[in-house]
Amino acid sequence: MGFIVSFVWSFMLWLMLTAGTKGMLWSPEEIVAGIIFSTIVAYSTRNIIGEKTTRFLNPIRLLELVVYSIGPLFWGMVKANFDVAYRVITGKIRPGIVRVPVELENDAQYTILSNSITLTPGTLTIDACPEEKALYVHWIYVREEKPKSSEPVSGSFEKWARRLGR
């Protein structure tokens, strides 16, 4: 299974990199070369890409990912950008590291949530601890020192992470 996922993933990337070799499309030689190299790449990374990888190929999941990144994530980043700009100009900062309890199940969900938090300016995930079901987040302006959920730190991201990584 890892082989197929890895193959599709690298072949898609290859198509993206070589688009436009024949008009706007791909010349057949380019596609043949892509298949050969994707096979080699897939063979060498088939064990690395990990279990439960079929979710990469689920089109609904990919669509959800796109919706998430242009919707809530982008909006969260815009808001956070203005917030950080305000704090940079006025100097009103109260930095600190908080422990954020989260309700997530697998590594993918932790990764998505941590990366979303890191991507928004002002917050930065320092560590993810699945064994204590918590993230450690550096926050530029600590509003709550002991948040009960991830809501004050990251808004709706946790809900989306649970949905995307299941």
Partner: peptide
């Protein structure tokens, strides 16, 4: 951390391609 690990899994394939 597991965040870096799970991102690495995806990135490695991309780097090779």
């Amino acid at each position: 951390t597991l965040v870096v690990k799970s991102v690495t899994k995806i990135i490695v394939v991309m780097i090779l391609a």
